[in-house]
Design a protein around this nucleic acid. Structure first.
Lengths: 112, 112
DNA sequence: CATATTGGTATCCTATAGGTTATTGATATC
DNA sequence: GATATCAATAACCTATAGGATACCAATATG
């Protein structure tokens, strides 16, 4: 664990793992919306429009498999609730970097 | 510029911008290889195998359009050289975060 | 009891990313 | 002068991501 010296191949592998989990058109928008307080399926859909139920359903499953989202079913009244897991917080530094970089990049490309 | 308060929509937009620039199977592997000292087309290809010339060519163009890579043509002897731009250094914190997160995530998923 | 909303699934379709293979003209090497 | 290497491009193919539309059973609401 104190082995900070990664080979180039390892670095590439880990970066690709990360990309695999968070990339795609909707995953981060969904997580950001959920962090804003959306926890019901339709609420999430409405705040990440125009995503379809089909795609949202698959994305939530992927996120659940990666332990970033927790799906809970309550009865009385029967409802389904999605929440970001505690583990999901570990993404924050990464997402913050992405926001920062994207913001700066837009300035850079659109001629300052 | 001191406006740190971004709306959810802005955050999502910037994150998507960033993803658009760096995602895909090869972009970061290429940049990592170039940082390791590869600057000739064939050198880059060999260190990011099994990428094909077709894909490498397109990726380098994309990276050039995003000002992350600089393409220089020399004559006498006529050679083409690709280098990472100074601006590319701005990606380092992000890529480091991705390496870190991916490494930890692998542990997390593969049952610790 | 009729209608709307919930959390989805089933089909089908399109666009894009990426892969395969062959070829190019220009130089370099033997 | 033949062969190999360079930096690509062309034509074609496949797999996957994502979108369109319809539908479902279960519950809630008017």
């Amino acid at each position: 664990m104190k082995d900070k010296e990664l080979t180039t191949e390892q670095k590439i592998k880990y970066v690709q793992d990360t990309l695999f989990v968070i990339s795609g058109k909707w995953k981060l928008p969904i997580l950001i919306a959920m962090n804003q307080g959306c926890y019901r399926f339709r609420d999430i859909q409405r705040s990440v429009l125009p995503i379809t139920t089909r795609v949202l359903s698959r994305e939530l499953k992927d996120l659940e498999e990666n332990k970033l989202v927790i799906r809970t079913v309550y009865d009385a009244p029967k409802t389904v609730e999605y929440t970001v897991s505690p583990y999901c917080k570990s993404l924050k530094p990464l997402v913050d970097e992405m926001i920062k970089w994207g913001q700066n990049h837009r300035r850079k490309i659109s001629g300052k």
